[in-house]
Design a protein around this nucleic acid. Structure first.
Lengths: 244, 244
DNA sequence: TGATACATATCATCCTACAACTTACCTCGA
DNA sequence: TCGAGGTAAGTTGTAGGATGATATGTATCA
């Protein structure tokens, strides 16, 4: 229970709230690329906070490449292509459609990465993956633990590709999905237990051991479609259903 | 020429430098997850800047989920899988190996997305893609313009998938690659002209028009492997070469 | 007219002060 | 001795003002 509290405990600090407000205004199109933001002083008056708070908020947006501040002139909204970071709005994930899209992206990333992992994995990778698999179905089967193991399983496979960017991207997407499901479980007691299909994981692992890229990719694809279904999201993937 | 200056003009502000320093220290493992950062005062003394600057730097790291600050206690390094944002170190991309990995990720993302786009595109999407294609080979063939069109071409295809996350991820990865190549061109006059293969793009476009998912995926895969080769990166993709 | 100097607006940085929160220690009473 | 409660110190969060750096517009003057 304390784990939950710790996981939630993201205190809403003032700079965070100001940044979120401005961020939404930009994403929603109320502030178009090229538009100039109000001055720091105007913002501090508008939100009723000190200029320091405004500056911390702007520092964050600037680091993300959402705005560009120029000394003596002001701060301007940048085009979406110029973003220096990818950030996913967790509020938006409460919408099932968005969840579906995220699962689709995950499937694309993980399926082909599984094929790469099958071709490149070494014994150390296999050991790590096996360890996660064991934890998943093992005695530590209280919910948080097995979900952690599930995520670790996927991360270790991503690591076995030897490509750190793939690892980063997959970890990130999986974590967003995990957080969103975690939240949904808390607000909707019906989904109290998240069912983890161990069989699907075993098939992926076996394909990796065999070094069979095609089988690994197919197994991963089937697994993610299954995982999506189990949380109430049905994937409209073209490939997943028929091809191959 | 002014375009270049505008593109480069990322002023190194003090908070940015402090954030970069701490970020590297975390990524490199000198500060492990769970470790506590020095206090704001200590950091401000160490870097010779005001506490305000340190706070802006920390605000950025916190927004990225790299650290967690708790009032009255201090700031602590979070585990990599808790990151709230994906950010790519542009310095690291000067290493060809990293560039290769990024191209590999791009290939995974774009190949399958091209298949999705072929299945879901409507006439509006095709028009936008065609417009980018025309700009690429058209009269506006000075370097910056055709590179912009190239990127736009890929972004429009991503948009045709109807999945905003796919669009975001692909835009981001392409932009990182573009920036890195841009930089390489400036420091190495040998690669002054970036060759853009229009034929490869046309084949992708034709597959999209035909609604042929398999052909679109194959064409996209071939194109990205080709593009990587033209900037001196050879992709070791398993699928790209042989498997159909 | 054209160029220079000045005033203004804005961001960048610094400084100090206080509030809110946590921890550790210390005192005091049973 | 031991426990409860309070106190002090340390740390982050927020406020507000002061000064430097930079860009823009304006007024002055040759």
């Amino acid at each position: 229970m304390k784990q939950r509290l710790a996981a939630i405990g993201t205190v809403e600090t003032l700079p965070h709230r100001v940044a979120a407000f401005l961020s939404r205004e930009i994403e929603s199109g109320e502030l178009n690329p090229g538009a100039r933001l109000p001055t720091e002083q105007e913002l501090s008056e508008k939100f009723g906070v000190s200029r320091n708070v405004v500056r911390e908020a702007i520092a964050q947006l600037r680091a993300d490449g959402m705005i560009e501040a120029r000394q003596g002139i002001g701060a301007f909204v940048l085009a979406p292509e110029q973003r220096a970071a990818i950030r996913i709005d967790r509020e938006a994930l409460k919408d099932t459609h968005n969840m579906e899209r995220l699962f689709e992206l995950r499937c694309i990333l993980e399926a082909e990465s599984a094929a790469l992992a099958a071709a490149r994995r070494n014994q150390g990778h296999l050991d790590s993956i096996k360890a996660a698999l064991d934890r998943m179905g093992g005695e530590e089967r209280w919910e948080e633990g097995s979900i952690d193991a599930d995520l670790l399983f996927h991360r270790e496979i991503a690591r076995a590709t030897g490509n750190s960017y793939i690892h980063t991207f997959i970890s990130f997407v999986c974590e967003q999905i995990r957080h969103s499901i975690h939240y949904a479980r808390m607000t909707n007691p019906l989904h109290d237990l998240v069912e983890i299909n161990v069989g699907e994981h075993v098939r992926i692992y076996q394909a990796l051991v065999a070094g069979d890229a095609e089988a690994a990719e197919a197994a991963m694809r089937a697994h993610i479609v299954g995982a999506a279904n189990r949380v109430g999201v049905k994937l409209p993937l073209s490939k997943a259903g028929g091809a191959k």
